[in-house]
Amino acid sequence: MDWITTPFEVGFVARAALAGLLVSAMCAVAGTWVVLRGMAFLGEAMSHGMLPGVAIAALLGGNLALGAMVSAGVVAAGVTGISRWRRLSQDTGIGLLFVGMLSLGVILVSRSQSFAVDLTGFLFGDVLSVRRSDLLILAAALLVTLVVGALGHRSFVALAFDHRKAATLGLRPRLAHAALLGLLALAMVASFQVVGTLLVFGLLIAPPAAVALWAGSVHMIMCGAAVLGAVATIGGLVISWHFDTAAGATIALATVTAFFLSAIATSLKRRPTAEVATVPSPRPAPELESTS
């Protein structure tokens, strides 16, 4: 037991754990809708699409979070605009913006010789350097996420399963889609300075996807994803402490590992049922057929 609790006796590790728990809860809400709507590629594009805004803000000495928010907003608006062209799918717009924004970010980063360390922190985060002010920002972002998620729950459900029905019911699917993109951007922007875009994307997709394999409702997916993300955060920090590995990357790997374990467990549980279902029912014995 001491092997697990000892790391959290240190102040910065305890703050890192609390930050991870807040991010896990926030990403569980936004990530559930991302998984149900099949928007994982959009999440990845938005996470890496924040790079130009962060780079410009760093080069100008401005606020990194503001730069990230503007950049994420550009990606969201671009995807929405391109998807209105009937001849182009949404994936096409996401792919173009993903490559374009990432390329622009790399070009901007290459203009500064001192940006290498900042870029590493942007991708992998520095969860062990979380400050009290960062925790307050994450707590406020989580509160906004919960409020928006609760107010838009009915619209999000209809949008996730039947876009046309959502419009028929007067649930304003375009507004719901915009709000969903806002939740996704908020999760990314509020978390990247603390845990990096790699960890944010891992917590955003892996826990909801793992729980969605066996959960029966949206609320179960959200709650299960929050718990799974919390377990991955604590486990990743413990492993990072004892084996001297990168904390953010270890937590991200723990979330992905949890998904594959859930997928394997689900397949093993369903296999016996499938085998029984495929076994043909035995034919009546010959003597019973002759006596009938």
Rank of each mutant, 00 (worst) to 15 (best):
L138P: 08
A72G: 13
G49D: 11
V54N: 15
F122A: 14
R154C: 01
A258G: 13
S89H: 07
L143K: 00
G125I: 07
V79C: 02
V194K: 04
V109D: 15
L213A: 07
G196L: 12
A179H: 02
W33L: 06
V279W: 07
M222C: 07
S110A: 15
F260Y: 12
W241Y: 14
E44R: 02
A158L: 01
A232H: 06
V147G: 04
S217R: 07
Q113D: 15
S112L: 08
V13Q: 06
W85F: 12
G100Q: 07
T250A: 12
V74W: 00
V74E: 04
P286Y: 11
G196Y: 05
T255N: 11
G105H: 10
T233M: 02
T233P: 05
A28W: 03
T5G: 02
R172N: 09
A160L: 06
L119N: 15
A265G: 11
G229Y: 01
S217K: 03
G95V: 05
A247D: 10
T257V: 05
A139R: 03
I221C: 04
V195F: 03
R270I: 02
W3L: 01
E289C: 09
R131Q: 14
S89V: 06
V200C: 04
L123Y: 15
I56M: 14
T245F: 08
L102K: 12
K165N: 07
S267M: 14
A141H: 06
F12D: 15
I94A: 14
D118M: 13
I251Q: 11
K269N: 10
A167R: 05
T250G: 09
T255K: 04
L21R: 03
R174K: 13
T80G: 12
T278E: 13
I82H: 04
G170Y: 06
W85P: 08
S290M: 09
L138E: 11
S47D: 09
A285P: 11
A176M: 00
S47V: 08
W33F: 13
A265Y: 02
R111E: 14
V144L: 08
L159W: 01
A226I: 01
A206E: 05
A187K: 01
V74I: 10
G78I: 04
G38M: 05
A28F: 03
F192A: 12
M39S: 07
D2G: 04
V75K: 05
I4W: 08
L59F: 10
V130F: 05
L88W: 07
H153W: 10
K269T: 09
W3H: 00
L228I: 00
P173Y: 02
E44N: 13
T266I: 00
S240E: 03
A65P: 13
G229I: 00
G53V: 05
R84G: 02
L21K: 02
Q113G: 12
G95Q: 08
F201W: 14
A226D: 03
G248V: 06
G149V: 00
